[in-house]
Design a protein around this nucleic acid. Structure first.
Lengths: 139, 139
DNA sequence: CATAGTGTATTAGATGAGCGATACACCTGG
DNA sequence: CCAGGTGTATCGCTCATCTAATACACTATG
């Protein structure tokens, strides 16, 4: 896989966490399927310009979460998840993001309608046409 | 004012930034109006259990952003913003949050409809009834 | 002027997370 | 066994953050 995760060392959130979330979301989005191999810690480290230990830490958390599976000496692979686990994971991630958003919206004292409108608006600007095709690949 | 900002030292984002965003959102939400005094750096430091220098840094950024105004020797006050500047600030904050959300949603490969549905769902759970009253205080 | 309240600036210190380097344990294939 | 691949564990170093103490300039009050 390309493993084109967007890593920003300037972000306050640690690099290993950015990697973790990136992989988690890719699995949730269906870009990584059960049994697929993820890059080795060293290879990923080279591509992302970070230390192998940093990648290893991200992988470790994903293994603990049951999303990745390690075959020692061979590599790291996407774990076999039960049935629609990927789908559930996707909903979970989406729900988490939605809660964060509504929390902020509530702090700002906006109405639900305004909050929804802002999402629609942001969607039109943020998501270029080529992204819209992917939306129907999962369901 | 109560200044009950939620500060979490465990968050990856620095404390001074949490304070800054808290005040910014409160102004955007209309909880702080032009001319209102914010707590002194020392008083806020006592309430939030942090160092005065930490509060001072947050205030400094808010002053640079034009949201707070300092009357040396007297205190720090919410700056007089032109007309509907608070409204614009609110939209800005909301837009920023919405973009972050849609960005995540796009990464997950969800459709716009699903993204909106997730917001509605999160809103019902997250925002208790007492918060809904505030929604019509603006606009 | 004296006092006490503001914000600001500076310095120094402590802490802890993040990260890099290295060595180790395991598997595959020769 | 050996060589090269894997993930894992450990040790320090670096650095941003936060804290603490202090001093300063300014303003209101008496």
């Amino acid at each position: 896989m390309d493993f084109e995760l967007s890593i920003d060392p300037n972000e306050p959130v640690p690099i290993w966490k950015q990697i973790e979330e990136g992989v988690r979301r890719r699995i949730a989005a269906g870009g990584l399927h059960a049994g697929d191999a993820v890059p080795s810690v060293r290879e990923a480290a080279v591509r992302l310009r970070v230390n192998p230990a940093t990648v290893a830490r991200a992988y470790r958390f994903l293994v603990d979460a049951g999303l990745l599976s390690v075959r020692r000496g061979e590599g790291t692979f996407v774990a076999k998840l039960g049935g629609d686990a990927a789908e559930m994971l996707r909903r979970e991630e989406l729900g988490r993001a939605a809660r964060r958003y509504t929390g902020t919206a509530a702090e700002l004292g906006v109405s639900i309608d305004e909050a929804l409108e802002a999402v629609e608006d942001a969607w039109r600007r943020n998501v270029p046409a080529d992204r819209k095709r992917e939306g129907q690949a999962h369901g």
